[in-house]
């Protein structure tokens, strides 16, 4: 059973809709980050939780932490917004280490629901885009749930003490990089790195809902 997020031929969509009806698309919503994102100042959730990266390494948020802090971006291969911002995320992430900030991109989509977000596809993507930071899988969505992350891309920046100092978007124009006026995430990393107060600690963006693995008990 597959639910793809990219352009779907109508026949495939009809089939997916049929399957969804069969499995009980009745009155419940797909959004599971209903509790909302963690608040500013919150310590890094699941800091010791092990995740596997596209390089085949096991990493933890605590282990990746830089002197100045840690940048966590929930993203994926398949969402148009994640793809629209992808080059900018990679540019910020590849420079983060130089600023003393550890960087990890986490893909929390359930690969059973979104085959394009399986580890092999993530590995291809990491190579294609020249990703130098950790790109890790969270197939059960545990990390995203702990963060209260709901969509991709969604950024969380923690300071050297592991407290959340920035949450939100990449910048103010996913559609046109040349029209960007506010480079929110780059500013946040720069402010953190240079020890300044965050000029804008929370921003928002529309994105693709994270395709969480459905929990049997919920």
């Amino acid at each position: 059973m597959t639910l793809r997020t990219s352009h779907v031929p109508r026949a495939l969509f009809a089939a997916a809709l049929g399957i969804a009806v069969l499995v009980g698309f009745a009155g419940h919503t797909f959004a599971q980050g209903a509790a909302g994102p963690i608040a500013l100042g919150t310590p890094t959730p699941m800091a010791d939780f092990k995740m596997t990266t596209t390089a085949g390494k096991e990493v933890t948020l605590a282990g990746l932490k830089g002197k100045k802090g840690t940048l966590v971006v929930f993203t994926c291969n398949t969402c148009p917004y994640a793809k629209g911002w992808e080059e900018r995320i990679v540019a910020i992430g590849n420079k983060a280490a130089d600023r003393g900030v550890g960087m990890i991109a986490i893909n929390s989509n359930d690969p059973d629901r979104v085959p394009g977000d399986a580890m092999s596809a993530m590995q291809d993507r990491a190579k294609q885009r020249g990703i130098k930071f950790a790109y890790a899988a969270d197939p059960a969505g545990d990390v995203a749930r702990a963060f209260g992350a709901s969509h991709t891309p969604e950024a969380f920046l923690f300071d050297g003490e592991g407290k959340l100092v920035y949450h939100g978007s990449i910048d103010d124009n996913v559609d046109d990089p040349r029209a960007v006026k506010q480079t929110y995430l780059a500013n946040a990393v720069a402010d953190l790195s240079s020890g300044k107060a965050q000029r804008m600690a929370e921003t928002k963006a529309i994105g693709c809902g994270i395709k969480f693995r459905q929990k049997a008990a919920s």
Binding site: G33, E154, K204, G207
Partner: peptide
């Protein structure tokens, strides 16, 4: 845009 509709909205669609 999101604040204009409802500030509590996370942006998921």
């Amino acid at each position: 845009f999101m604040n204009a509709l409802e500030p509590r909205w996370t942006g998921a669609i």
